[in-house]
Design a protein around this nucleic acid. Sequence first.
DNA 1: AAGGTAGGTTTCCTGAGGAAACCCTACCCA
DNA 2: TGGGTAGGGTTTCCTCAGGAAACCTACCTT
Lengths: 170, 170
Amino acid sequence: MTRTSLAGVTCSIARAADVVGDAWSLLIMRDVLVGITRFDDLATDLGISRKILAARLSRLVEEGILVRERYQDRPPREHYLATGKGRELYPVLLALMNWGDRWYAGEDGPPVRIRHLDCGHDTAPVTACAHCGTELTTDNTTQLPGTGGRAGPGTRVLGPLIGSRATQPG
Amino acid sequence: MTRTSLAGVTCSIARAADVVGDAWSLLIMRDVLVGITRFDDLATDLGISRKILAARLSRLVEEGILVRERYQDRPPREHYLATGKGRELYPVLLALMNWGDRWYAGEDGPPVRIRHLDCGHDTAPVTACAHCGTELTTDNTTQLPGTGGRAGPGTRVLGPLIGSRATQPG
DNA sequence: AAGGTAGGTTTCCTGAGGAAACCCTACCCA
DNA sequence: TGGGTAGGGTTTCCTCAGGAAACCTACCTT
């Protein structure tokens, strides 16, 4: 979370970043989607301060990304589940994981494999064009003003993507 | 950036989140990839504190995500360009933008359109299986331990993804 | 009655984030 | 030769978010 709120900015990345653009929220979503849904389990798994965990969870609930649900009455026990909006963060997490795998995995390779149940293979995520199915990259895409545009910070839209230097994954 | 460093954790999302898991770094990368590469331009466009901008830029340079480059000698002027590692964050940004578009775009629709130059259409990113090309979702994927696994915080790997509740994009 | 577990809340401290002013070099120009 | 401006930061000062650890409240078990 930034101190400078980005909620009013006309940029979907800024608006998304305002809500889930902090490391703990991303890791909480990862855990919840993977089945770690209880307060104590999250605290233990992440090593996060319990105060911050409580704050993040209530923000995520406020935003409709998680719901707090009682799963047992005696004794009363609650856990946190992802809503549809929360599950739609999966591509963000996959993209981050893939990037982390490529640039930070050690000698031994990545710590986790993703298996695609539909085709049965261990796989990696590819960001593809909804239209033609081929990969989207900085080189083959450009940004154009949309219908919801208006001037303001973080709103500048320029021509074809530029500005790169070669490097290889280590 | 978290105070609790996540760099040592065996989880690619955690390691990625440690580096770019903060709103400003994500927005800086967005700007740089779109052609806003100079200090003052970034400061103005983002409305970020100049101190924080300087800190983020040097972290991103340290991590090999950006390079600082002189683009003019008289007078000496520098700017920041994305490396290959930096450009590979594009899928993360696209995923975030897409999520922001779906859940935070107003009546008028999203502020920016992505045009895929290869097929010529305005498009949206789809997170697809590198193997079979169909979409990856929480429902059709599962996580398995990888070769680089070892015990520690944020490393738990469970069975098929569970824990969801229905909602529709607003 | 003592101890354990789940799910937080409170307290206190440190340091990251923000605003605004300041600095330095290098032009540009009269 | 002095003044103005632009780029690219750095410094100062303040506030508030993040972290550690203790505490609290039900409820259950032995």
